[in-house]
């Protein structure tokens, strides 16, 4: 079976973000960009399923600006076989991305779609669930284990308070949580090979999908800064402060 894996170009998780002076958004000029960490886990899982012989082909897809091809090349270097870039400079929100991915699913007929549970820029945690709803496929979100078994997949999910295992009919949509796997690093020869792997470029119009959303971003602000307090010298002083100053004991 084919596996479709969606990736997103986001600000590198090590970068300390700055809000623009006019509060219109976060400042992304000259900031290091990378593949969303949850998407790296998704790519890794897809590639491992191919290595195990469960999958025959891994297709990476992204929705984003021209520069997002870098992240597709990364996915190809990590082991994806080919890539689809749906190019747009508009701010594509979860619903629009899910609609575009649904069209790709219709075209490619994958047995499994793997996505990160959320992107670390907008922190929405929606696209996989929306894709499942739009395609009418079952979903296993926040996966910490994925076991394909014939025409079913068992997904162990990280839920509040513990773990839940569900069985889904295939095809299915899976979104990855942190402990699903540890992504590998791309080796130099693989990075070179990735440059020659096929990468199709499409536009939202090719799929007849409108990217605009009815949600507008009015402003972006830094959160209230928390001021550091005092250092105390001993456990006794700490207990005294908590009792008499902060009054929380």
């Amino acid at each position: 079976m084919k596996i479709l894996v969606a990736v997103k170009r986001v600000i590198d998780y090590n970068v300390k973000i700055r809000v623009k002076a006019d509060h219109s958004d976060v400042d992304l000029t000259n900031v290091k960009m990378a593949m969303n960490p949850f998407c790296e886990i998704a790519v890794e899982e897809a590639v491992r399923l191919k290595e195990k012989g469960v999958a025959t082909e891994v297709i990476a897809v992204t929705v984003g600006p021209k520069a997002a091809q870098e992240q597709l090349r990364t996915a190809l270097a990590l082991g994806a076989d080919r890539a689809i870039h749906i190019e747009t400079d508009e701010r594509a929100e979860s619903l629009a991305v899910a609609k575009l991915l649904a069209k790709v699913v219709e075209e490619e007929q994958p047995g499994l779609v793997v996505l990160g549970k959320q992107a670390i820029d907008t922190d929405n945690n929606q696209t996989g669930q929306m894709l499942a709803a739009l395609t009418g496929l079952p979903q296993g979100t926040f996966a910490s284990e994925v076991a394909v078994d014939g025409d079913k997949v068992n997904v162990t999910r990280e839920i509040d308070g513990g773990l839940q295992t569900i069985a889904l009919t295939l095809p299915a949509i899976v979104t990855t949580d942190l402990r699903l796997n540890e992504p590998r690093y791309a080796k130099l020869p693989d990075i070179m090979k990735a440059k020659k792997k096929p990468l199709d470029v499409k536009t939202p119009a090719d799929y007849g999908v409108e990217v605009a959303s009815k949600v507008s971003l009015l402003k972006v602000e830094s959160p209230a800064e928390r001021k550091g307090g005092v250092k105390v010298a001993s456990v006794d002083e700490l207990i005294d402060k908590l009792k008499n100053e902060a009054k929380v004991l």
Binding site: A98, Q126, M130, D160, K214
Partner: peptide, 23 residues
């Protein structure tokens, strides 16, 4: 915004063709 809310609400939004606001 529990793991249940996050699991279910985007499905409602997509099927009603509206966006969802998280957290």
């Amino acid at each position: 915004a529990s793991t249940t809310g996050k699991n279910v609400l985007p499905r409602l939004a997509a099927l009603k063709d509206v966006s969802q606001l998280s957290d």
